[in-house]
Design a binder for these strands. Structure first.
Lengths: 198, 198
DNA sequence: GTCTATATTGGGATAGAC
DNA sequence: GTCTATCCCAATATAGAC
């Protein structure tokens, strides 16, 4: 049944997944609709049955990727808020996310959105607020950190991952992930070992 | 003397300044060589007398902007290391840098460089290392912060500024700059007021 | 809903005059 | 060193068949 609604929905998902993967790793302008549709195993003509144009696809792809990220999912029952957020930060600042095909859009597109149409920027802002809001929610059950501290921590882990992806020195990337993990856990009162000069 | 070396050097500077301004505010692909040369008050044909191609221009523009940034300049005699770095962080995380035509390339191009030719990425990496190295140098004269802490702080101020530029909510931008300033100064042992829940 | 074929344009790069 | 004129390709979007 190639004309069923399920089939169309399925095609749409495949397009969105391919779009985010290719945009985030190659940049919006370096990827053509052709390439996206080929990756999703369709031809270009089919594209316009799903999306109005390339810019709309970009916005939808950000929402799609944001909705798939682990942080918006519900916490596993057996973990405490503290254990859960510790795990999230460690997974976020993992080297897999540096080379990943499907990284956090907040890190992968941080600069890019400023030069796109307003709707893209709006999508980014909403996604950022949601992430910060989640961290605030978990942290306040056990931590003394102020909202300033949480916001700065959110900026730090996104920035750290983004820079780790940007630089061409694997050693520096690794160091960045490690340093940001340590500091983020400390800022949120999760791990409090005393720091010392190296 | 339109053919003097000084004249050529002058033209080159104008091209670089226009290029960085336009690239960082509009994105590499949304700006044509035509627009850059028009901004620099020349025509497109003149471009190739200065740069091999658009990609080389981009790399050179990053170096140009990085070389102009305040942090690589020498500290004014009358200020201590501590006073100077406090001033630098406050100026870095100022709302002028959010709307600025000529912001820090590390924040303005953070995502963009990952999808460009290797030489661009290399330019970014060198610039980041230099900035971090400067902060380490100033901080170690008065602070107990480990190199992990300084690296994470560098990521935080760059990330904070980049996100403040990305989001379309001025209130959130302002909050981000403020929060990152407070935390950065605290992480580097510059201001140590006790934090409290809001 | 998906395909092929085609119209159209924007912009990078080169050639050659001044 | 800077200009104008030109070549050329890549990619968006549309039209129309199946």
């Amino acid at each position: 049944m190639p004309n069923s609604p399920e089939h169309k929905e399925n095609s749409r998902h495949r397009i969105l997944a391919s779009a985010f993967k290719l945009f985030s790793t190659n940049g919006y302008d370096n990827i053509s609709i052709n390439q996206i549709m080929a990756d999703a195993e369709m031809t270009r003509g089919a594209f316009y049955g799903h999306f109005e144009n390339k810019s709309v696809l970009y916005r939808e792809a950000i929402f799609y990727a944001a909705g798939n990220s682990e942080i918006v999912r519900n916490k596993p029952e057996k973990l405490s808020d503290k254990e859960w957020i510790k795990k999230l930060i460690q997974k976020y600042l993992d080297k897999n996310n540096v080379t990943n095909d499907c990284p956090c859009p907040l890190a992968a597109l941080i600069t890019d959105v400023t030069v796109r149409e307003p709707n893209v920027r709006k999508a980014y802002t909403r996604t950022f607020k949601r992430m910060n809001h989640r961290i605030v929610g978990y942290a306040q059950t056990f931590s003394n950190s102020s909202s300033d501290t949480v916001l700065a921590t959110t900026a730090m882990i996104i920035g750290g991952l983004a820079i780790a992806r940007a630089v061409d020195d694997p050693q520096l990337s690794k160091q960045l992930l490690k340093s940001c993990t340590i500091e983020a856990l400390r800022l949120l009162d999760i791990d409090n070992e005393k720091q010392s000069k190296p």
